[in-house]
Nucleic acid binder design. Structure first.
Length: 588
DNA sequence: GAGTTTGAAACT
DNA sequence: CAGTTTCAAACTC
């Protein structure tokens, strides 16, 4: 009876027609906290920012009400199939669902199918609702922001480690019941908490007992964690959906590999606080690491071996490079053709042409790569020339000469930012392309099409092969990683740096030794480069060295540099940099 | 399902 | 800002 009932206080000042098309009161999110990219929700969705009346239904999984852990209503998450079934339904009676008491409201979504009484948290009472939002924000500007600080912004990674921003204040629950927001969010209590008798810390016997106690229950939690990970319950700001931690179950089933030195510190105030806090509070094992070999004993869930290998930007970059290669092929072929024509003009026009033509394919690819290597090796020149030519990069090729449909398709998304970022040498290549003669349509174009496609497809095939290789490497490394993690767990002496590199490698699914970067090299030697070496190497050396942070000793950098000289790279440049990136853990 | 406990949110 | 009240979820029986 929630929605309908609105009479008493606020009139339905929102005309129904304004929401008419709103397919329904499909649970929709009024406050899209994530849309702000983590920015503070400083305004209660002023009119203009307010989602259109037709609030898009939230994906079930991301619905604000993450889950209703309500034991009775375990409905939200069917643990059997790991599919979030439906949003949680609140039962508010006195708050009109316009206070943070209401989970729906707190989550920034409309009540939909709830069991609330006198609900105003619906489109029919938008005005009242908005007012309430404003009031709430006035009281606490962060009211609708995630309570759990999590992974860095901007990344979609599945890091669910977190820390309650405000911390809990539990007194009696030991922070081991869902009364505790930290526990409910599946995070450890942190130094932010002011709880008493906290048992929700790393190494807590009670906590471990809880997780190890009932196997079924445990599995349910694992499943929930899986759900959280799969459904993206971990947004850029921690929770993608509900700002209120209440519903989320997430990550923490993973009794980490964390700092064994943080043991039970006592039963008094939050033991997490103090010096040990950082390591302990920050150490929760990211769900990202739930790979078979990555989690603690008895707690793991399936994770694709290819997970994290390919990121969206990698695909873009791949496309960029394919375009680049294609353009280069065009250029080379064109030049050759021109040369040939010229030659033919000057002399006889017979056999020479055909023989030239025949040798094109192979020779050309070699030329392409060579040319690109040259381009890349002279980056400074590229920089100088690129500005004026930036408008005529590979994407512009069609202007002067046709590109194959396949290439064009690849370029569809390319031309803006990514393109220029992806390949520093594009400018020079473009320059070369630009200066090359116009390609006559017809026979020449056909040949170029064919060649472009051949090269592009070849590169793409190589890329796929490399992905497969990565998967295989991950597979083989996982087991050893598991072993090493266990050893680390047992050996408190292993320093954090070492552990960090191990874990970083772990996340990458790459072999874990004390030198994560060394693994990169180890891997790289197993395969050849997908893209022109210089292209890969130059960026890889920079990015990898840069991103390895603390874990990247000169050793790591040297290894990457090794890539350049050996022109081996397991993956395209971006993949190199991204995949071997060492995450925050290392930085700390 | 009713009643109790709990802790966050709201209020003073 | 501390103390109190209100509230709804979590929990128990």
């Amino acid at each position: 009876m929630s929605e309908g009932e609105n009479s008493d206080i606020t009139p339905k000042n929102v005309p129904l027609d304004s929401v008419a098309n709103s397919t329904s009161k499909k649970l929709a999110r009024q406050l899209d906290f994530n849309a702000f990219g983590g920015a503070p929700v400083t305004a209660p969705l002023p009119e203009q920012q307010q989602p259109p009346p037709t609030l898009p239904p939230l994906p079930a999984a991301k619905l604000g009400k993450p889950e209703s852990p309500k034991s009775k209503s375990r409905s939200n998450f069917e643990t059997k199939d790991a599919t979030p079934k439906k949003q949680k339904q609140c039962n508010c009676k006195h708050s009109r669902c316009l206070k943070l008491y209401c989970e729906c409201f707190a989550s920034g979504i409309y009540c939909d199918g709830c069991n609330c009484v006198n609900c105003f948290n619906n489109v029919d009472n938008e005005a009242a609702r908005r007012e309430a939002v404003e009031a709430t924000l006035e009281r606490n500007p962060n009211a609708f922001r995630p309570k759990i600080a999590s992974s860095p912004h901007g990344r979609e990674e599945v890091l669910i480690l977190g820390k309650h921003n405000k911390g809990c204040h539990c007194k009696k629950s030991g922070c081991l019941k869902k009364y505790c927001e930290c526990f409910q969010a599946n995070i450890l209590c942190s130094e932010n908490c002011k709880c008493m008798d906290c048992k929700n810390f790393e190494g807590s016997e009670e906590r471990q007992a809880l997780f190890h106690g009932d196997q079924n229950n445990n599995m349910a939690y694992i499943q929930q964690a899986a759900n959280a990970a799969i459904t993206g319950a971990i947004g850029s700001s921690g929770y993608s959906s509900p700002p209120v931690s209440r519903k989320r179950k997430g990550s923490e089933l993973w009794p980490s590999i964390k700092d064994p030195s943080v043991s039970k510190l006592g039963q008094q105030a939050n033991p997490i606080r103090g010096p040990a806090a950082p390591s302990s509070s920050m150490s929760p094992v990211p769900v990202a690491r739930v790979g078979p070999a990555t989690v603690g004993p008895s707690k793991f869930m399936y994770r694709s071996l290819l997970a994290d290998i390919i990121q969206p930007q990698h695909l873009k970059e791949l496309c960029s490079i394919l375009v680049l290669v294609s353009g280069q092929a065009t250029k080379t072929l064109t030049e050759q053709k021109n040369l040939k024509d010229k030659h033919a003009e000057d002399q006889t026009e017979t056999s020479l042409a055909s023989s030239n033509q025949e040798q094109l394919p192979n020779q050309k690819e070699a030329n392409v790569e060579k040319a690109m290597a040259d381009d890349c090796s002279s980056a400074t020149q590229t920089d100088k020339t690129s500005p004026e030519n930036s408008s005529s990069d590979g994407a512009d090729v069609p202007k002067g000469r046709p590109m194959s449909p396949g290439t064009l398709a690849l370029m569809c998304d390319e031309q803006d930012t990514m393109f220029m970022n992806a390949a520093p040498s594009i400018g020079s290549m473009a320059h070369a392309c630009n200066t090359s003669s116009q390609l006559p349509y017809g026979q020449g174009a056909k040949e170029i099409y064919a060649e472009q496609e051949r090269i592009v497809l070849t590169k793409f095939r190589d890329f796929l092969n490399r992905v497969i290789t990565m998967g295989e490497i991950n597979e083989t490394k996982c087991s050893s990683l598991a072993r090493s993690e266990l050893e680390i767990q047992k050996d408190p002496i292993i320093n954090s740096t070492e552990r960090a590199s191990t874990e970083a490698a772990h996340q990458q699914g790459v072999g874990a030794t004390s030198n994560g970067a060394a693994n990169v090299v180890g891997n790289t030697t197993t395969s050849t480069s997908l893209f022109p070496c210089s292209l890969v190497s130059e960026r890889a050396s920079t990015e990898a060295a840069h991103q390895q942070g603390v874990g990247a000793t000169s050793n790591g950098a040297a290894n990457v540099v090794g890539n350049t000289t050996t022109s081996t790279s397991l993956v395209p440049s971006s993949l190199v940099s991204e995949k071997w990136e060492i995450k925050p853990k290392v930085e700390q």
